[in-house]
Design a protein around this nucleic acid. Structure first.
Lengths: 163, 163
DNA sequence: GGCAACGTGTTGCTTGGCAGAACATCTACG
DNA sequence: CGTAGATGTTCTGCCAAGCAACACGTTGCC
């Protein structure tokens, strides 16, 4: 193992390198978005329209509810999203993207996609697709291992009464 | 893109999910190691025998030098590694694994590998290999984009005067 | 109506990691 | 020898994140 001339890097290390590179790239690309990469992920989740409550949003993003409050606060302040009361359950507040939010996200998403492709420059186009697909499947499967997060399967019943 | 019935998760989100899952798994598996996943990565890097100086080690791990000091301190205290002065340049201190450190790492590495396989359970064995390979290539290619880190190409000349 | 449970927001505490400055040690170059 | 630069250590401050606890409004159940 240890006398191999190449590679021999830890899986976790490669993950970390990739994530750091991704983060710094994304932060550079999105610039003024309130909470950097976090804010971008949040905006993306909001635009997707799933996650009827802040709780669902927080667990999807893997962050604390108290943190999400500030996050949403700042996104609201930036005019990108707004809190909308669920008339069926006025405890819940659905976070929806404003028109501006959608426009901004579309533009950012374009830039971020470019950055991602740049990041995956070592892979051929086919490999990139395969890589992203595997990454998706793996990440979604994690929801089975750690059901507390349920990132992929969003209760769609919850959506029906909110939309 | 946006009207696909499934998936539609951000690349960064999948990365985050995977990393969080990996971290929590690893932390569970390694248990008492001083700095959790960080400590494990450090130990792995030390055992690999590359990185003749703490600076090289820090940049490889993508962490600050001042942080590495504490990390190494605790690993030394745990009897896993030791600081060895480079006789050719006594400013430099090469971190080497003790016998205990190597034994511990071997065991931890076994467990972590299991955990990784479990984590990649959604992929077939062939896919796992391909995935890890692509991940490695991508992570290593990042060193070209951000040469400050130079994670993969370790100056081997530096090694020759230290070993 | 009364009570428990829930969603949200707020506060405070703690931890962890990063960044910067100052310092000691050592090497390299005149 | 003296100076400049490199390495590592220590100290300090800072910021982000997570966690716990509480308050408030709301819902559901009895």
């Amino acid at each position: 193992m240890s006398d191999e001339p190449v590679a021999n890097h830890t899986f976790g290390w490669t993950l970390g390198v990739l994530l750091r590179a991704y983060q710094s790239t994304v932060v550079t690309v999105i610039g003024d978005l309130p909470h950097g990469q976090r804010g971008y992920q949040t905006l993306a989740a909001v635009v997707s329209g799933r996650h009827p409550t802040q709780l669902a949003l927080a667990s999807y993003l893997g962050i604390d509810r108290t943190v999400l409050t500030y996050l949403v606060d700042d996104l609201v302040e930036a005019g990108l999203v707004e809190r909308r009361l669920n008339p069926n359950d006025r405890r819940q507040r659905r976070i929806v993207a404003t028109d501006k939010g959608e426009r901004v996200y579309k533009e950012l998403e374009r830039r971020v996609s470019e950055a991602e492709d740049h990041l995956l420059g070592a892979l051929s186009p086919d490999e990139r697709t395969a890589f992203k697909d595997m990454l998706q499947r793996t990440a979604c499967a994690v929801s089975d291992i750690e059901p507390a997060k349920d990132p992929c399967q969003v209760a769609e019943e919850m959506l029906s009464d909110g939309g």
